Every structure is written in structure tokens, then in C-alpha cells.
Simulated assay, not measured.
Amino acid sequence: MLILLCASLTSTAQAQAPDEVKTLIKQGVALYDEGKYDEAVLRYKQALKLAPDNFTAQYELAMTYGSLGRNEEVVELCKQLLKSEQADASVYVTYGSALDDLKRPQEAVRIYQAGIKKYPASGLLYFNLGVTQAGMQRYQDATESMQMAVRQNPKHASAHRILALLTAQSNRVPAIFASVRFLQLEPRGQRAVGGLEVLDKLMGQNVRKTGENAVTLNMSPDMLKQMNGKKNMPDNFGMTDMLLTMTSALDYDEKNKDKSTTVRLAEKLTLLCENLEEKKPETHPGFAWNYYVPYFITLKKAGYLPTLAYLIQAARPGQPEAQQWLEQHPSEVKELQEWSEAYKWPQ
């Protein structure tokens, strides 16, 4: 009877252990969400004492170590996690991020690329790869990685934001589209305020008021390079860039002095889309021609550009006009959001 009783107790303990492990992991996640990282670590370690090979506990512990800046431990855990059949793209993201934080970007790039080879549809892997490449001043590689990131996840606001920053100095039109898309996805908050500053600089680029009735237009080297370059050069927007410069100069025209920032933005975006539509986007090579241009032309045709202009102005400080309009037209905003959600982006 004693032997049978011991066997029964052992069996019961083994059955209870998985439930206890799940409870400890759940508690750890809750503590992590509260920012109590050290306490979360203790819960995960308790879970791993009961189940040393538990993948979820190991991964959550790695994530928590990352938040604590204990990146060497993250790296060691991720090496073990990649041996598991349960490993997915998130392990490569966590692993690469830890290496990047340890100032080992070359290794981080190799890890991200290994992850992409295995999980080519992971936009987050491309995004993190692009961030690391930008930190290495490999800007062309970073741009291409960010382009892949938004292809895989068109709703990744941060990827559009960084893509705008990467292209702002060399190709204004794609940078404008990336900026507008970022603001469409994230129209409020401190990042949106910064995004509006970037967009304002892009829209007013090459135009400078030099007197009471004088405006000076500049032809940037990149604009000239595109205008004088081969027509089939990828993402050649030279002529459109020049048109936008002339249109922006009209901001100082007497007939536009009473128009709001939002109205002028809607007018310029409309003219931009009309110009690009005339050029038959399908005949032009390049990421922006293939990805951004069709979206904004289709959006303009559907009549949503004015609504979009108000939406992306929502975070502009000191100008409540856009916010008031949005509060008075919730159905138009909802319709734009539903249309955009249903849009089929190219991959």
C-alpha cells in the first residue's frame, strides 16, 4: 500500500507541475507588463526549475533580460532557443537586438539575415535589420531593408517613418509618401509632431522667401541628377519634384494667403497624384513607383485626399482646425480607414 501511495503522489505532482509552470509564466508576463522586470525574472526562473526546457519561460526570460540590459544573457538564451523546434522569427529578432545593443552589429546582421532566410515574410526582421544597417551608415542597404519591411507589413508605422528619413535627403517624392503614410497610421502623439516637421520641410524644400515680394527656387543636385538621368532610372521623380517646387512657391501667392495649411496640403497632394497618374506608374521602375504611387493615386480617385490631409494634421500644435474637422466628420475618417484596410498592397 505504501509503494502504491508513493507512486500515486508522484503521478499527481507530475500532473500538477505543468499547471504551476503556466501560472508562473502568466504571473511573469503580468509583472513584465507592469515594468517589474526583476520580479518577472524570478517567476520565469521558478518555472524553469520545474520545467528546464520550457520554451515559453526561456523566451520570456530572454525578453525580460533584454529590458534589463542584460544582453549577454539574452544572447546565451537565444542560442539555446534556436535549437528548439518551437523557435520562430521572434527569437531571431530578440537575438539580433541584443547583439546590436552589445555593439556587435555585424553579428546582428548575420542573425537577422539567417532569420529572414528562414522566415522571409517577417517584416520585423527586415525592420530590425534596416535599423542596424542605418547605425552602420549602410544607408542604401537600410533603405532596401525598410522597403521590404513595409512590403511585408504595410501597417508598420515605424518602418514608413524611418524610410522617410532615409530617403529625405536624396529623393523627396518617395520621402513625402512615406511620411504621409506614417502620419496616416500614427496621426497623434509626439512622433506625429516630429513627422509633421519632416513633412513640412519636404513639402517646402527648394523654396525660400527672399523678400517682401520675392521667392527663390532652388534646383537640388538630386533633382537635377534625376532630370538629366536615364528615364528608366529606378524611382526617377525629377520632373515631378520640380513641379512640386513650383507649386510650393505658390504658398506665398496672394490668392493662397488665407488658405489653411491643411487645404494647401490637400491641394499639393492632389496635384502630385494627378501628375504621377499622367506618367503611367506601371511603366516606371522602382519601389516608390510600384508601392506608394498606386496607393495614393487610388486614394485620390476614391475622393479621400481631403480627409487624409485633415487626419495627418491632427497632431499639429497650435492649430485646432484639423482636430475640429475630424471631430465633426467621424464617418469620413472611418470610411477612409476601412478603405485603406481593404487596399491590396503589392509584395
Rank of each mutant, 00 (worst) to 15 (best):
D258T: 11
M242C: 10
N236P: 15
M242G: 02
R264M: 12
L250D: 10
V263C: 05
L265S: 01
F237M: 12
N236S: 14
E254K: 15
T240I: 10
A249M: 15
L269A: 04
F237V: 09
M246F: 11
M239L: 12
M242N: 11
K255Y: 14
L244C: 14
P234F: 00
K259L: 12
L243S: 07
T240L: 06
D251C: 00
T261F: 07
K268W: 08
V263I: 12
N256L: 07
N256W: 05
D251I: 02
S248C: 08
M242F: 14
T240F: 00
K259I: 00
R264L: 13
N256I: 00
L244S: 13
T270L: 04
K268V: 10
R264A: 03
T247V: 13
T245Q: 04
L244Q: 14
M242D: 11
A266L: 10
K255Q: 15
A249W: 08
R264V: 01
L265V: 01
D258K: 13
T247K: 07
K259P: 00
P234C: 02
D241F: 01
M239I: 09
L250P: 00
T247A: 15
F237W: 09
G238I: 04
R264T: 01
D253W: 04
E254A: 14
D235K: 09
D258Q: 13
S248A: 15
Y252M: 08
K268S: 14
T270E: 08
L244F: 10
A266M: 10
N256Q: 11
N236W: 05
K259Y: 02
S248V: 00
T245S: 12
T240S: 15
D253C: 11
K259R: 11
S260D: 13
K259M: 07
L243T: 02
R264E: 03
D253Q: 09
G238W: 03
L244K: 04
M246V: 08
D258N: 15
D251W: 02
L269V: 02
A266T: 03
Y252F: 15
G238V: 05
G238R: 01
M239G: 03
L269M: 15
L269Y: 04
D241R: 01
E267V: 06
S248I: 06
N256S: 12
E267T: 10
Y252Q: 10
D258G: 06
A266I: 03
G238A: 11
S260R: 03
V263W: 05
T270F: 01
T261N: 13
M242Q: 12
F237H: 07
L243A: 11
D253E: 13
V263Y: 06
N256R: 09
T240K: 01
L250M: 09
K259F: 03
T245P: 08
N236Y: 12
